[in-house]
Amino acid sequence: MSNYRKAQRSFWVSVCCLGLSSLALAGDRLDQILEKNEIVIAHREASVPLSYLDNGKPIGYSLDICHAVVESLKKQYKRPNLTIRYLVVTSQTRIPAIAEGKADLECGSTTNTAERRQKVDFTIPHFISTAKFLVRKADRIQKIEDLRGKTVVSTQGTTNIKTLHKQNDERVLNLNILESKDHAEGFRFLVEKKVDAFAMDDILLYGLRASAANPDDYEVIGKPMTIEPYAIMLPKNQKRLKAVVDGEIARMITSFEIYTLYKKWFESPIPPRGINLNVPMSFLLRDSFKFPTDKVND
């Protein structure tokens, strides 16, 4: 066989493989889950109290909601032995994990944005956070203007990085902006005094503060810079799977079951250290629960 014929054959084999891969991703995700009798749930390592690890086990508010979805799938499709396979993701890998078909659902602390909806779909929001700063109390920083000329960190792959750069440009703050690989590293930078503030969603900051050796040494400050509606991510254009997830979340909201779940994770002692975040449900979240919908204001 000539080199030309070999190259031509290799090309068409590659095209066929790519086509089969695309078909697999484009197929009905719910059918694939039922056929495999397995659902893959992506989760975070340190998004307390929404999605994190306790002795290697994924737990949290978002995980409990996803577990309820799995139970709904078991009942609706008579799959009592449907198993869960967990996949750890980061701020950088969570969207590719869903878009590329590595996971069926992402149950973490991901904000529904117009940019992200180009690659993935989102369900009804189950939490609403706002972007603020975590600082050392001894530094007496109370507002964003107090950070002028100082060093601030935020996590790679989050909406907070973009917000921070925008605030810096609009307010001419002359910030030195660093990017951490994850929330834990960002908080460690603050503890080690490598930065003056950590910009992130307030609920995650409360979780990090509560996990510190001396929580009273830190405080969450500033006016909300953005509103962050958290929702479960799933592959794009998977209407049947989305209907199941949205249906279960709507049921949890209208039955008030979600309020009990909220109290469990935000107003009660939580693993691993029995810390109580004492974060009452915000009026924004309460209002969103009055009329459950996947539509959000971008």
Score class of each variant (00 low, 15 high):
residue 173 L to P: 09
residue 233 M to D: 02
residue 149 G to N: 11
residue 69 V to L: 07
residue 12 W to Y: 15
residue 152 V to L: 07
residue 219 E to K: 08
residue 191 V to S: 02
residue 61 Y to L: 02
residue 97 A to Q: 05
residue 296 V to P: 00
residue 122 F to P: 05
residue 12 W to D: 02
residue 125 P to K: 09
residue 121 D to K: 01
residue 93 T to E: 03
residue 208 L to H: 08
residue 280 P to K: 10
residue 72 S to Y: 03
residue 159 T to S: 13
residue 148 R to G: 03
residue 40 V to S: 07
residue 169 D to Y: 10
residue 125 P to H: 06
residue 266 F to N: 03
residue 71 E to I: 02
residue 163 T to G: 10
residue 204 L to D: 12
residue 235 P to T: 09
residue 15 V to K: 09
residue 268 S to V: 05
residue 211 S to W: 07
residue 84 I to K: 08
residue 244 V to I: 11
residue 249 I to Y: 03
residue 171 R to Y: 10
residue 71 E to V: 02
residue 266 F to W: 06
residue 74 K to H: 05
residue 242 K to Y: 00
residue 121 D to Q: 12
residue 217 D to L: 00
residue 32 Q to C: 00
residue 287 D to I: 01
residue 215 P to H: 11
residue 44 R to M: 09
residue 272 P to F: 13
residue 217 D to E: 09
residue 189 F to Y: 15
residue 219 E to V: 08
residue 15 V to Y: 12
residue 273 R to Y: 13
residue 140 R to K: 12
residue 219 E to H: 06
residue 212 A to K: 01
residue 229 P to Y: 09
residue 247 G to L: 05
residue 158 T to H: 08
residue 190 L to K: 06
residue 118 Q to G: 12
residue 140 R to F: 06
residue 27 G to Y: 11
residue 14 S to N: 15
residue 149 G to W: 11
residue 43 H to S: 08
residue 236 K to C: 05
residue 227 I to W: 06
residue 112 N to E: 14
residue 158 T to S: 13
residue 3 N to K: 03
residue 260 T to I: 03
residue 274 G to S: 07
residue 258 I to S: 02
residue 131 A to R: 02
residue 107 C to L: 10
residue 196 D to I: 04
residue 140 R to A: 15
residue 196 D to M: 01
residue 128 I to F: 15
residue 289 F to E: 09
residue 242 K to L: 14
residue 104 D to K: 01
residue 252 M to T: 11
residue 167 Q to T: 07
residue 271 P to S: 07
residue 134 L to W: 06
residue 124 I to F: 02
residue 248 E to T: 12
residue 169 D to K: 12
residue 98 I to Y: 02
residue 288 S to G: 01
residue 110 T to M: 10
residue 156 Q to R: 12
residue 119 K to W: 02
residue 115 E to I: 12
residue 109 S to R: 00
residue 67 H to N: 09
residue 157 G to H: 09
residue 282 S to V: 02
residue 156 Q to D: 13
residue 176 N to Y: 11
residue 122 F to T: 04
residue 246 D to Y: 03
residue 280 P to M: 15
residue 175 L to R: 04
residue 187 F to H: 08
residue 95 I to F: 14
residue 87 L to H: 14
residue 172 V to T: 10
residue 186 G to W: 08
residue 115 E to D: 10
residue 199 A to F: 13
residue 211 S to N: 13
residue 258 I to G: 02
residue 196 D to G: 04
residue 41 I to H: 02
residue 207 G to Q: 11
